[in-house]
């Protein structure tokens, strides 16, 4: 058993070391990262707007046009992922590439490409949603819950 006094001393040593590390660790280039995320995320949204407008020009309402718009964005991202281009966008733009639906599609395609080497059932099939899975899980949990509340309360 560790002596309690010794434990405290070790915790102090750790805290002291972490302060030393904080001095040496370079800060993330926040301004550069923010600008890159803003511009790339914005441009992907503009592309989405162009697709949305194209669908709406055929007479679809906004609600009707949203699903095919997202599907088209997913198609573009999937192809770019297959061509090994999308992860370069991610490296450059961080959240600018991760937050749009194109980033969501990238996680699914990238996982599928990677894990197929462990087989198409237990590899690709099982692990396709290894990163996108939580987004769907919590999207459904939160989405159904808030809609249930809104529906019941008749807001």
């Amino acid at each position: 058993m560790t002596h309690p006094g010794k434990k405290k001393q070790h915790a102090d040593e750790q805290a002291q070391y972490q302060r030393l590390v904080a001095v040496h660790v370079p800060k993330p280039p926040l301004v550069r990262n923010l600008v890159a995320a803003f511009v790339v995320g914005g441009l992907i949204s503009v592309l989405g707007q162009a697709v949305l407008n194209a669908f709406m020009s055929t007479g679809m309402a906004l609600d009707e046009a949203s699903a095919p718009t997202l599907a088209t964005m997913i198609l573009i991202s999937a192809v770019l992922t297959g061509l090994s281009i999308y992860h370069h966008v991610g490296e450059f733009a961080g959240a600018g590439a991760a937050v749009p639906i194109t980033g969501f599609a990238n996680t699914i395609v990238a996982a599928a490409m990677d894990f197929k080497r462990e087989g198409f059932v237990l590899g690709m099939g099982a692990k396709m949603f290894i990163i996108a899975g939580p987004v769907i899980v919590y999207g459904i949990v939160a989405g159904v819950l808030v809609s249930a509340i809104r529906w019941w309360t008749g807001m």
Binding site: N33, L34, A36, A37, F38, V39, V40, G41, G42, L43, I44, S45, V46, G48, A93, G94, A95, G96, A98, V99, P100
Partner: peptide, 10 residues
């Protein structure tokens, strides 16, 4: 708006 949402993510 799309850019701003991504910047929040960053």
């Amino acid at each position: 708006v799309g850019g701003a949402i991504c910047a929040i993510g960053q």
